Computed example of a mutant assay.
Amino acid sequence: MTVYVRSLETAVPPTVLVQTEARDVFAAQPGLTRLGSRLVSTCFDSAAIDTRHTAVQEMTMAFRSDDPQFFDPSTGLLLNPTTKVRNEFFAREVTKLFIESARAAVNACPDLSLLDITHVITVSCTGFFNPGPDYKIVRALGLDPAVQRYHLGFMGCYAAFPALRAAKSFCEADPQAVVLVVCAELCSLHVRTSNDPDTIMGSALFADGAAAAIITARNDPDAPALMQLDHFETVLTPVGEESMAWNIGDHGFEMVLGNYVPHIIDDHIIGALAPLLARDPSLRGLPYRDIRHWAIHPGGRSILDKVQTRLELTDEQLVPARDTLRDYGNMSSATVLFVLRHILEQPPVEGEERICSMAFGPGLTVETGLFTKLRQAATGKRAVQPEAASSLV
């Protein structure tokens, strides 16, 4: 049975972090050692990011509060709230992104009604609350209260793939199923000043955003699907368990992103792709570069560089991932869906438009997916913002 992506929509909060200005704020924090200061400049400047979005409105000089919690623009100091404060902020603000992106995905399928949705799968690794985002979406959109709800929490940057794979399984089990998948992350809640290289790297890379998709085996000729979901695979690399992790500390969640991660991916990326490509007889023995589209999670510039070199991909094939990194940064689980949206917005070309996609996360886990692009998504709708953006500092 063929399972389709009928819609794929994205959303970001309105406050924009300009990378060079954010760098200057982090570099000016008291307590940085000389090495820490150099690392801030190096990490921010080499990240290949121009702008990112944050739900923390305090991260702009134009915002004033009598009780700042994350950033005090009057002094330029980054503050260090407790995990409880950060998580309460998450529960309040991430709900907006979950609902906004979910509503956009549903509205992009005019032939489907709200009561057609049978399953809701939500994804996030940057906070917790219950009743959770799955519940909030059902209530806000007016879905059937009996809809099946699932939440995938704390998996990391690769979590969109388990969500899509679960949606595909639901649709294969029930041809009438309509699954709403929503990933939303507020990574910027957990940035802090530090001399620790992993913390500095996280502050230079991570951002906030959301993406939502409607998955179903039901296809309407008058509203054809964007993409079909062909195959998924999961691979754990034999090394790297300590090199990428996501832990909970007293003052937010703590990223472990060792500088050896790009080398691990370089060593094991071909082996990680082999099980996926073996699933499709038409791709066996095909040079990697001959697959037309590549939707690679931009965990960082050096990761993209390693993937491109090892798989002998062209600069053009890396444009969707590099553009997403440049404009939005790393939004954890939502990011690869932004990359897929970028590919779907491109005009159609002659021949079959296969997409090979991959994301990396704690473990070190490599999730891969093989898709087929069916039509061009409407342009001009990517990354909906609830209000006009405002610049940092």
Rank of each mutant, 00 (worst) to 15 (best):
R38L: 08
R310V: 12
V366F: 06
S391D: 12
G156K: 03
N195C: 10
D280W: 02
F161Q: 06
E93M: 10
Q385T: 10
E242C: 13
D24A: 15
M227V: 02
A245F: 06
S41A: 15
L313K: 08
L304V: 08
R6P: 00
L277E: 04
M1S: 15
F90Q: 03
P262E: 10
P133L: 04
P110N: 06
E58V: 13
I248S: 11
T365H: 04
F71N: 06
I137G: 00
N80F: 11
E100V: 04
G351V: 13
H251Y: 15
F71T: 08
L325I: 02
F70C: 08
P386L: 10
D116H: 08
S391K: 12
P386R: 12
R326Q: 13
F253C: 07
P298H: 01
C356F: 13
G351E: 13
D196H: 12
V339R: 08
Y150V: 15
F70V: 06
D72I: 07
V56K: 02
S65N: 14
E242H: 14
N330R: 09
E242W: 12
S203E: 05
E88S: 09
L344P: 04
C356E: 06
V106F: 07
F129V: 10
P298F: 07
F129T: 11
R165F: 05
S391L: 14
I49Y: 03
Y135C: 09
V16P: 00
V56F: 03
V138M: 09
L283D: 13
I270K: 12
T365R: 09
V366S: 11
L205W: 06
T75E: 09
L152M: 11
L114K: 05
L205Q: 02
E58F: 03
A55D: 07
R218I: 00
K84L: 08
A102M: 05
R322I: 01
T51V: 15
D305C: 09
A389I: 10
